[in-house]
Amino acid sequence: MPANTLASLHIGETATIVSIHAEEALHQRLLALGFRTGKQIELIRKASFSGPLQVRIGTTDIMLRRTEAAKIKVSKP
């Protein structure tokens, strides 16, 4: 299984969260927004000029910076 991160997904791709390697504050925030191991996550779009990403977990749309997305390991189906 190749080690992909959320930041390396292409627009429109769906993947499964494998693990989250984030510091405490970010981890808590991600958990509260529904980032959990085993959840499906879809990359909706990327902002211009290396701006943040828009992702979707279930029915929730979330934006996060690419540096933070790189801390989330995902596996493509």
Binding site: A22, A25, L26, R29, L30, L33, P52, Q54, T60, D61, I62, M63, L64, R65, E68
Partner: peptide, 11 residues
């Protein structure tokens, strides 16, 4: 700023 920038995009 120590707060991670993760925001919900509400409908």
């Amino acid at each position: 700023n120590s707060e991670p920038f993760v925001l919900e995009l509400p409908p």
